[in-house]
Structures are given as structure tokens and as C-alpha cells.
Amino acid sequence: MFAGLAIACSISMVYHKNPLYSAISLVGVFISLACIYVTLAAPFIAAVQVLVYAGAIMVLVVFVIMLLNLDEDKPLTNLRYLYAVGAVLGMTLLAQTFFIFYAVTKTPNTPVENSTAGLTLNIGKSMYTEYLLPVEIVGILLLMAIVGAVIMSRRLSQPQIELVKAKEDFEAYQERHDY
């Protein structure tokens, strides 16, 4: 049921030209995936999925869409061959999917009984012992992303602003004198 919901939402995401509709559909995909994670005995991952993806990333995306007041997506004009590329790629991936679907039927088909892997305690334990290095790397990556985002979205650096202001003042002064 959630799988069907996820597929429907993702198709509608790609189909809609309006970015805001796409964003809403994507939120639908995320929430249905979170429900699937709960059925897969991973409540922690499900909660983080809702919190991070639906709660933070997509809110940011919606915020940016509203801030920039984007219009509809234009159809391809000069890159028409991309349609063909997309179709071929889609077909290949789908074929691959079905191949996997049949190949996997031979591997373990019953979930491990009483799996404790999804418990917050176990995730935390292995996160800070066995996988400490990846966690540290991800932390540094996040820090770099924060700094990068701040620098990127700054308008102009201070000296540049002063230059622009000085130029404007000068032009205004000239105008007054011409008058």
C-alpha cells in the first residue's frame, strides 16, 4: 500500500511542471517511505527520515520556491535529444530492476527473527565505536556545508558594497550639479 503511494507520488512529482506541486509530491514519497521503514523494523530511521527530509530539507526547498516565486518548468527546446536519452535510460534501469527482482528471489527471503538492529541504542553504539571515522567525516562535511552555504548566499562583501555606494553617491552628486 505504501509502496503504491510512494510510486504514485514520485510519478506525480516528475509529471508536474509546477515546482511546488513536485515538492508536495516528494513530501508524500518521503512520508510513505518512512512508513515502509517502520514496517521494516527501523523506527529510528523512520523518525529521522520525517524529521530531516520532510521536516527540514523539503521545508527549505518549499521556502526557496516561494521566495523565488518560480514559474512553470519550460519544455526542452534546444536539447530535444535528451528525451530519447531519458527514455533509453529509464528502460535500461527498469530492465535492471526486473533482473534484480528475479535474481534476488534466491537469496534470504525471511527477515531475521527479533531483529534488534533498528533500536536507537544499537545504532548509537555502533555509530560511536565501529563507524567512528565515517561519523567524524560526515560531521566535517556538514560543517563545510554550513560555511559554504553562508558564503554562497551572502550578497556582496563589505568593500564591494562600499564601492557601489560611493559610485551611487557620486552619480547623484553629478546629477544634482547638472540640474
Binding site: 512520508i31 523512520a46 523518525a47 520525517v50 521536516g55
Partner: peptide, 17 residues
């Protein structure tokens, strides 16, 4: 729910939509 606090934080954050 094993992750009750995260659940509440996550679901209330969906309300902003």
C-alpha cells in the same frame, strides 16, 4: 513508541507545510 521524542518533533515539523 521507541523514538517518541523524535516522533513528536518530526510530526510537528510537518505542520509547517
Amino acid at each position: 513508541i521507541d523514538v517518541g521524542v523524535l516522533f513528536v518533533l518530526g510530526v510537528t515539523s510537518v505542520g509547517v507545510y
